[in-house]
Design a protein around this nucleic acid. Structure first.
Lengths: 190, 190
DNA sequence: TATTGTCAATACGCTAGCGTATGGATAAGA
DNA sequence: TCTTATCCATACGCTAGCGTATTGACAATA
C-alpha cells in the first residue's frame, strides 16, 4: 500500500514539502496555488483551508527548510571539537547533493521578494560566524579570520552554482568528496 | 536639454537597456512588456513594433549584455601577457561594481527558462577555459589546472552573491580592490 | 503636395492565477 | 443518531499581463 493511498486528507506539512520541491527546482516565483493543488490531486479549496494565502505557504515552507538545515549542521558539524576537522566536515557536507542545498542554491539569487533577501542575509551571517570561529580557533586574528571565512563561504556558494550550472544538478557523492578534499587543501592551512 | 527630451521616438536599443536594468535588479522573470512600456512613457503598441514578443526582447537584451561583457574581458584581461598578472587583473575586474556583474549575479540562479540555463552554462565554460589556460601556463598539469580554475571561478561566483546578499549591492571599488588582493593571494601561488 | 515608412495609441480577446464565499462530504464524539 | 469539526469542491469576481488588429501622427522624400 502506497503512502498516498494511505492518506485520506492532506496536512499543512504535505503542502510545505510540495512547495519546497518546486522552490528547489524552479524557485519561489514558481510556487503557485492552483498548479500545486493540481499536483496534489486536490483543488485550492483545500489550500485556503490550510493557509491564508500564497505567501503564508512560502513562509512556512522556508521555515521548515531552515529548521531541517540547521539541524543538519548542529548535529554533524558543530559537535566536532577539532576546528580543522570541523571545517573539513563542513566542506564535505556542503558538497552533498541533498535537497536542502538545492533549495539554497536556488534562493541565492532570488531577489523577487524582500523576505527572501532577509532570510538569505541571516543565514549567510550565521554561517560566516561559524566559519570565523573556526579560523580564529586556529590562531588567526580577527581581520584575517573574517577575510578567510568570507572567501571560504564564497567558495561554498560558488560551488553550488557551478555544479547546477554546468551539470544541471548537484554532483554525485563521489565527485563531491573529491572536490571537497581539494578545496579543503586550498582553504585550510596545514 | 535632457537626453530624453531630445528623443522623438524609441529604438530597439532603448528597450534592451531598459530590460537589462530590470534584469539586473529583479531578474528575467520581472521583465514584462506593459510595465516596461509604462516606464518608458509609451504603450505596448511601440513594443510590438520593435520586437515580436517578450522573449525576443529578453534574448536581444542578453545578447547585448554578453557582447559588452566579452568586450570588457577581451580588452582588459586577455591582452595581459604575464599569466599571473592576467589572473590578478581578472580578480580585480570581477570585483568591480558594474551593471554587467549585477546582471550576471542575478542570472546565476535563474532557472526559470531553459534558454537562461544554456547561456549560463556557455559563459561559465568559456571563462573556465580562460582560467584553465592561465593556470596551465603557470606550469600546472591538466587535472590540477582544472580543479584550480573551478575553485577560482567558484570564488568569483560566490563573491558576487555574497556581496549582494550581505550588503544589498556590490561593494565599492575600494573594498573590492582589497578583497581581490586577498583572494589573489590565496588562489595564485607565489 | 502627395506618398511612403516609421513609430505609437487604442481597443480588443484571451489566459493564468489570486482570493472569497458557500456548500458538500466524511469521521469522531456526544 | 445528531452534532460538530475537518477537509475539500465548486463557482465566482478580479487583476495583470500577453499578443493582435487597426488606426493615427509625423517625418522624410519624391
Amino acid at each position: 500500500m502506497s503512502e498516498l493511498a494511505k492518506k485520506k486528507s492532506l496536512t499543512a506539512k504535505d503542502w510545505q514539502e510540495a512547495a519546497l520541491n518546486v522552490i528547489a527546482h524552479q524557485g519561489v516565483g514558481a510556487v503557485a496555488v492552483e498548479p500545486l493543488a493540481r499536483a496534489l490531486g486536490v483543488t485550492k479549496g483545500s489550500f485556503y483551508w490550510h493557509f491564508s494565502n500564497r505567501m503564508d505557504l512560502v513562509k512556512q515552507a522556508l521555515k521548515r527548510w531552515r529548521e531541517n538545515d540547521n539541524q543538519l549542521i548542529e548535529q554533524n558539524i558543530l559537535p566536532i571539537k577539532n576546528p580543522k576537522k570541523r571545517l573539513l566536515a563542513w566542506f564535505k557536507l556542503s558538497a552533498e547533493p541533498i535537497q536542502s542545498h538545492l533549495i539554497y542554491s536556488t534562493l541565492l539569487a532570488d531577489r523577487s521578494h524582500a523576505m527572501i533577501s532577509k532570510i538569505l542575509k541571516e543565514i549567510t551571517l550565521e554561517r560566516l560566524a561559524h566559519l570565523q570561529k573556526s579560523y580564529k580557533e586556529m590562531g588567526y586574528d580577527n581581520a584575517r579570520a573574517k577575510s578567510q571565512s568570507l572567501l571560504a563561504y564564497s567558495v561554498y556558494v560558488g560551488f553550488l552554482h557551478m555544479a547546477k550550472t554546468l551539470y544541471g544538478a548537484l554532483p554525485g557523492s563521489t565527485e563531491a568528496e573529491d572536490y571537497a578534499q581539494f578545496v579543503a587543501k586550498q582553504l585550510i592551512p596545514s
